[in-house]
């Protein structure tokens, strides 16, 4: 049984390390800012998730208790990675693109971040 757990830990560590390396390599390799967003937010998050799961299995197999800290960190990273990606993409769209340079938005009139509702007088914002 020990062997099986060791194999599991090794596989998770190796896969996580490769994912982390690919994520950061994509950050310097890809040439478009929007495609550059994909590599770190997806591959690196998966890589660190693999390392955290390996750590969890290690705590269970070698110290005999299941530790929930790692699952908490994994969950937190998996929840926050899309939010940071969305924020950075939004900042890029507002700083470097206009509605004309973006691809068509499908059935909507324009992309949501450019779709500003008309200002109401006396609404207190401004």
């Amino acid at each position: 049984m020990e062997q099986v757990f060791d194999l599991l830990i090794t596989v998770f560590l190796v896969v996580g390390g490769i994912f982390g390396l690919v994520g950061s390599f994509g950050l310097i390799k890809l040439d478009d800012p929007m495609s550059r967003l994909h590599a770190p937010t997806k591959a690196t998050t998966l890589g660190v998730g693999g390392v955290l799961i390996a750590s969890m299995v290690h705590a269970y197999a070698h110290e005999g208790h299941l530790s929930w800290h790692e699952l908490l960190i994994t969950l937190f990273l998996f929840l926050t990675a899309p939010i940071t990606a969305n924020f950075i993409a939004k900042a890029h769209i507002h700083r470097h693109e206009t509605p004309d340079t973006l691809p068509p938005a499908g059935e909507d009139k324009t992309w949501a971040t450019h779709d500003v509702p008309p200002e109401e007088p006396g609404s207190g914002r401004g």
Binding site: V48, L77, T84
Partner: peptide, 22 residues
């Protein structure tokens, strides 16, 4: 650009977490 730097910093934080766990 600034956006790339922020993205690289964010990735660096995640890599730092992985190194600490390791």
């Amino acid at each position: 650009g600034v956006g790339d730097r922020v993205l690289a910093l964010d990735t660096m934080v995640i890599n730092a977490i992985a190194l600490m766990i390791l």
